[in-house]
Structure formats: C-alpha cells, structure tokens
C-alpha cells in the first residue's frame, strides 16, 4: 500500500498465505529472489558494486586512501562503514541524519567485514603509528523492496572483492585489496509462526521478528543480528542457521564471480 499503514486485512492474507507455504511473489519459503551484481560500477570509487535482489537495488562504493591510524590501534588500518537510505529509494525514507535503521545496517555490515577479518585490518599498515590504509564503505540505497541487510552485505563484499589500493603516492604499483573470507548473510523473517527467507517489502512490513545470519565458506557462523520486537525459539534459530548456511553457499558464487 502506498501509505505506511498496512491494513489488517492485507496482513492476515499474507500470514495465511505464508502459513500455507506460499508467498505473494510465488516463491517458496526458503527461496531467495533473483540476485544480480555488477562490479566496478563506479569509476570514482576504488571498488564498487550495484546489487539487485529482486526489486531491491543498492549501490556500494569503497573508497581507499591513506591516512593516520586511530591512536589506540596504531597497527591497524581504518575502516568506516555508513549507509544512506536516501529518500529517492522509498517514500518512507526521509532526508536528514541517518535513522536507527540506517545505522543498524551500517554497523551490522561493518561487523560482518571487520570481525570476520574478511579484510584483515592488520595487513593494511604502511608505517605503524603513522600511515595506514583508510577504507570507507558507503552503502547507498536506490530502490527499496525489502531486505536491505542482505543486499547491502552482498554489495559490500562484492565491492571489496574488486577494490584496488592505489600505490601512486607510495611509489608502488596498485594492488588488489586482499579479501580473506566470504561471509554471506541471509535474512529470515518470522510471520506469526512461519519463517520465510529473503523477505520482500510486503513481508518485512508485517514480520514479527527478523534474524540475519552470516556464514562463511567453511560453514561457520560469523555474524548474527536479530531485529524487531518478536521472538524466536531456539529450534527456530538453529533452523535459520542451517538454512542460511545452505542458501549462503548458493549465493557465494555470485558474489565472488
């Protein structure tokens, strides 16, 4: 619906529909939408990717420069992740400082890269205490139809995977940014008692709870984030993890390509 209020009637329809194992766009509960990734989309960025997950469209740019490390981490590169949910992408996005949703997305994506050592920040030191590589990951939503978490995460990983560290200032050749792991995030939404994966907007709007799980190429769990006010049982969490692992393996190839 164009207004933000979702009518009870539509909510009930989707609840019943998913409970019967179907979804409004014809997918099965564990089916993710079509994913396409265009790498090196933006010339002015050192790495970039435009991701389309169904009708959700996100552009991620990675800018890499040289700067000073943080004083308390002299032997580590600097990584900053931000997300802009610009009003162009949805009638529900407002201009202004980042909303809690934008901040949550940025922080979850950031942890997914930093804590997993997808990019090992300790390898990004030029002169300890003085000069390090500085990475900015900027997530720019373009069209919102649900599941920004996964779209932003795939875009970030894809952008990092094609990013170049320009060596001109150091008098060394350019080299690719080393990416050591491939954590793929999969988001599930719980609608009443049914769990569906890669929620589209109409599902996301009525979901009671949301769980994002990132698994790596070895099948290990690398990141998790639960959202919304509902709850999951322990069995449901295990189910989401094992499904996320399987779906993640299918998607990893697309992101790595």
């Amino acid at each position: 619906m164009s207004s933000e209020v979702v009518s009870e009637l539509m909510r009930e329809h989707i609840v019943k529909l998913v409970a019967s194992g179907r979804r409004a766009d014809g997918r099965g509960p564990e089916e993710t939408r079509k994913l396409t990734i265009e790498k090196n989309y933006i010339k002015t960025a050192e790495g970039s990717a435009r991701v389309r997950l169904g009708n959700t469209d996100v552009l991620v740019g990675v800018k890499i420069g040289i700067g000073e490390p943080y004083p308390d981490t002299p032997t580590s590169g600097v990584l900053t992740t931000s997300a802009e949910l610009v009003p162009l992408a949805s009638p529900t996005f407002e201009s202004g400082p980042p909303s809690p949703t934008a901040i949550e997305i940025a922080r979850v994506v950031d942890r997914g890269i930093r804590e997993t050592k997808t990019v090992d920040m300790s390898k990004l030191v030029i002169t300890p205490g003085e000069k390090v590589w500085v990475l900015f990951i900027d997530i720019h939503a373009l069209d919102y139809d649900g599941n920004l978490f996964d779209a932003a995460s795939y875009g970030t990983l894809a952008a990092l995977s094609c990013a170049t560290m320009r060596g001109a200032k150091l008098g060394v050749p350019d080299r690719p940014l080393p990416v050591d792991h491939w954590p793929i995030s999969i988001t599930a939404a719980k609608i009443r008692n049914t769990i569906v994966f890669d929620p589209a907007l109409d599902e996301e709007r009525i979901a009671d709870a949301r769980l994002t799980v990132a698994t790596d190429e070895n099948g290990d769990v690398r990141a998790m984030q639960k959202g919304l006010t509902g709850s999951f049982s322990y069995d449901e969490v295990r189910y989401v993890i094992s499904t996320a692992r399987r779906l993640g393996n299918e998607i990893r190839g697309i992101v790595r390509a």
Binding site: A45, G61, D138, H140
Partner: peptide, 9 residues
C-alpha cells in the same frame, strides 16, 4: 552526491 561519487570521498 554519494560519498563515492568524487575522487576525494
């Protein structure tokens, strides 16, 4: 302007 749209972020 997107942060990555220009040479200097």
């Amino acid at each position: 302007m997107a942060p990555f749209s220009v040479s200097d972020r």
